[in-house]
Structure formats: structure tokens, C-alpha cells
């Protein structure tokens, strides 16, 4: 990766914009986190300490954006989940905001609008794929939630009924009922 330190205060012409993304639960524990810059928080220990600090500073005030430890962090929460996107403090905040929106919206579609910890954990594989489709090594790969979900939620519904657990069948029946009521 190429890191040139920018002397002036202009933004650096680079595609490596995202320094990290993470999803924390309502105790500040990591559910998923990716850091893309080898120079920023290289070890899991530093990352988790940062996440603790970040969570403490953000879980009460829903203020969308915070500058912390030299990073600009945009965030959004729902029920018991906190979504964060981090970038350099010398970065266009609105680009980071658009990445956060993409992340949140993609997860939301994946979880059929049930953005909750339990549901997310049940679909962790798809959420991991969505992470991978949104950002590749710090470069924003895609910002269109529908196309991301199209490439991440590949679980076809043709799994024979016999292979689904009873709970899954019930869950999907509930979902269908709910959606039909909402229409």
C-alpha cells in the first residue's frame, strides 16, 4: 500500500479512504471489524482498546460523527447494534458518511429491516460478504446497497424444506406474514 504523508492541508488524491469499519453490540463488544491500514492499530489489542474508547464516547449521544485518536469516525446505531466507519482526519467526511450509509442500508436489506444483534448473528456470513463487497483493502468497492446485497445474499430459497430447521421455517413464515401485512 502506498502511504504518502500529506504536508499541506489539501486532501490526498488516493483511493485508500476507509481506514476501518466495524459493528459493535450494545456492550461495545466487537461483532465484526476490519482495519485497512497497517500503520493504524496493527494489533487486535490496540483495535479493541480503540473500539472501547469509541463506544464509550458514542453510545449515549447519537451525534453521527466524532473525531477520535486522529481518525474521523461516522456512526449510526439501531436497537442493539452500532455501525462505525473510520477514515483519516484529513478526509472528506461526507465520503465516509456515504460508506456508512451503504453499510447500514446493505445490512438492513440483508436482515429484512430487522437490524438487531440476534438476526445479524444468524446471518453473519452474508454480513461478512457485504463487508467484503463494500470495501476492499481500504478502497471503496461499491456504494449501491442493492447491488451489494445482490452479491452477498446468495442464500437461495431452494434449500429443501427438510434441510431447514423448524425454527428457520417458522422464522421465514413469520417474515412472510409480516411483509404481507405491511404491504
Amino acid at each position: 500500500m502506498v502511504h504518502t504523508t500529506m504536508e499541506g492541508s489539501l486532501f490526498e488524491p488516493t483511493l485508500y479512504i476507509v481506514k476501518g469499519m466495524c459493528i459493535l453490540d450494545n456492550d461495545g463488544n466487537r461483532i465484526l471489524a476490519k482495519y485497512y491500514d497497517k500503520d493504524i492499530m496493527p494489533t487486535a489489542k490496540e483495535q479493541k482498546a480503540f473500539e472501547k474508547n469509541l463506544f464509550n464516547k458514542t453510545h449515549r449521544a447519537n451525534a453521527e460523527i466524532i473525531m477520535l485518536e486522529g481518525l474521523t469516525c461516522v456512526y449510526k446505531s439501531n436497537v442493539d447494534l452500532f455501525f462505525y466507519v473510520m477514515g483519516s482526519s484529513h478526509e472528506n467526511e461526507l465520503i465516509l458518511q456515504s460508506v456508512l450509509n451503504t453499510l447500514y442500508e446493505s445490512v438492513s436489506i440483508l436482515l429484512r429491516r430487522n437490524v438487531e444483534r440476534r438476526v445479524l448473528l444468524d446471518n453473519l456470513d452474508a454480513v461478512m460478504l457485504a463487508f467484503d463487497e463494500i470495501c476492499d483493502g481500504g478502497v471503496i468497492l461499491d456504494t449501491d446497497p442493492t447491488s451489494i446485497v445482490g452479491r452477498a445474499a446468495l442464500r437461495t430459497e431452494d434449500v429443501p424444506l427438510g434441510e431447514q430447521t423448524v425454527a428457520q421455517v417458522l422464522q421465514s413464515a413469520k417474515e412472510q406474514l409480516k411483509w404481507s401485512l405491511l404491504k
Binding site: 466487537r30 471489524a33 476490519k34 487486535a44 483495535q47 453473519l124 456470513d125 461478512m128 434449500v159 434441510e163
Partner: peptide, 21 residues
Amino acid sequence: VNPRKCSLILTKILYLLNQGE
């Protein structure tokens, strides 16, 4: 192999790697 079962195991591996503990 059963794809679902494999996918779950892979998710577990990825989760462990991601937690880094």
C-alpha cells in the same frame, strides 16, 4: 458436503480470525 454446514464452519473460522483473540 452439505453447503450450509460448511458455510457455518467457515463463518466460525472467520469470526475467530476477526476477533483476533
